[in-house]
Amino acid sequence: MDVLSGAWDWLADGANWAGENGVWHRLAEHVYVSGVALAIACALALPVGLWLGHLGKGGALAVNISNVGRAIPVFAVLALFMVSPLRGWGNVPTIVALVLFALPPLLTNAYVGMREVDRSVVEAARGMGMSGGQLFLRVELPLARALVMTGVRSAAVQVIATATIAAMVGQGGLGRIITAGFNTYNTAQVFAGALLVALLALVVEGALVAADRLLPRRPAPADR
């Protein structure tokens, strides 16, 4: 396939890696934007989700918010931001959109993780005289870890994917290599860019799975 060899040639050419439109700069933009967005989303969603799960309230909210999130096209939201005054604010439109789309998996998994902690364990801890705070930190949080981490992982993958779409509305990131290739009818470049984006997503997913395995595991319920 000449497209494959073309993509390989494109990737092998050092000139394509340097400069403002080069791979390194686009990759840095992609990682920066994704990292900031994921950090903000975690800071917002995890406390709320865990707290609601601890209280056992707002279950319908946690479920519905992920259903709504699924129905709203990322591209449409980015497009709306780009025709609003947010346009002039550099990376802000992308970051806001990424945060919005990372919130549902984080919230839902944090909530569900807390709720799925065995009720009898919680009762036993209460019976031993643990306060609400102790119960939260020493019992519920360690037991909910697996599901919360699953939420963080799917949010991270979602963020990486969404940051690619930002290129379609003229924002930075690796997706720009793809859109630039489309604009110049350079199929080899489109393919090379797509390979890079797919690779980044898979590497991030793999790294998070590995990180989750490496973290010290307390006696938690069996993974599903």
């Binding site: 994917a161 779409i165 393919f191 860019g193 797509a194 797919a198």
Partner: peptide
């Protein structure tokens, strides 16, 4: 599951050839 990880823009572009 692996397929789902691939960002949509990349997926459509990979199918282009």
């Amino acid at each position: 599951t692996l397929l789902y990880t691939i960002p949509s823009l990349a997926m459509f572009s990979l199918l282009l050839p």
